[in-house]
Structure formats: structure tokens, C-alpha cells
Amino acid sequence: MNHHHLSDTDIQEYVLHRENCRQEAIAHLDACDLCMRKAANYSLLIEAMALMPATAVDMETTASIMARLPAGRRRSRRDSVLVCLLAMAGGVIVVPGYLFRRSFLQVLENVPALLLCLVVAASLVILLFRGRALLKHYQRRMKMLEFS
């Protein structure tokens, strides 16, 4: 009989991934009672590990997490503030714009057409990029919440 018994690593490898085990290790185990008993112990240990009770999250924790999710509420409040500000800004531009439309038109007539085109094109490009980023952000969030 071989007096060099197998290491614990070899024995665990035999129990868990027999297909990766060295041939000599398997041959030793077949012939050695002590190593085979150690392997049997590991098998029992591994079986028992799967049966240990799991540590669970306290049920009230889920509720308190949901109660503490501030971003949602804060963000919706922030969103309404933003809408109000935009509406006010819109009012500030549109009302005087309507009242002084003639003077504005006169000013615009004096601005070179090329500069006007540049300003409009730049605004469109910025809008396009912002829109795309928003759409991507939304799609990513939706996709992720499907828990794939």
C-alpha cells in the first residue's frame, strides 16, 4: 500500500470534480480505506452544507427599504419644480415675444441669415443628443427590471 495518503485538496477534488482528478489519485482511493473514508466524510459534509438553513432577510426590512427609497419621491417633486420653472421661463419669453413681435422681427431681419441657420442647427443637434440619451437611459432601466 502507498504510504503517502492523498491530500485534502485531492480528496475534495475527487468528491466534487471526479472528472478532473488525477488517475493515480483515483487508483489510490480505490485501494486505501482511510482516504476513501475521508472522501465519504467530505461527501456527507457537502450534502449537509446544502441542507443548512439559509439566513433570511427580515421581512420588515423590505418594507423599510421601500419606505426609505427617497429618489422616487424626491425626483417627482424635483420634476414638478422643473416643469413650473420651464413654464415660467416659457411665459417670460412668449408673452414679451408676442407683445414686442414687431421689434423682434426687425432685429431678426438685421441678423445675417447664416448666423441664424447656425443657431437653429446647433439647437437641433443638442436637442437630438439629449433626446437620444434620455431614451437610452429609459430603455436600459426597463430592460434591467425584466431581471434577465
Binding site: T62, I65, M66, L69, G72, R73, R75, S76, R141, L145, F147
Partner: peptide, 13 residues
């Protein structure tokens, strides 16, 4: 936003 919260509850579960 409420939809997000509900979906997040499912993520927790």
C-alpha cells in the same frame, strides 16, 4: 416613478 418603485420591490423579492 411608482412603476419604478413597484419594479424595484420585485427586484428586492
Amino acid at each position: 416613478m411608482q412603476g419604478d418603485s413597484r419594479a424595484f420591490e420585485a427586484v428586492i423579492k
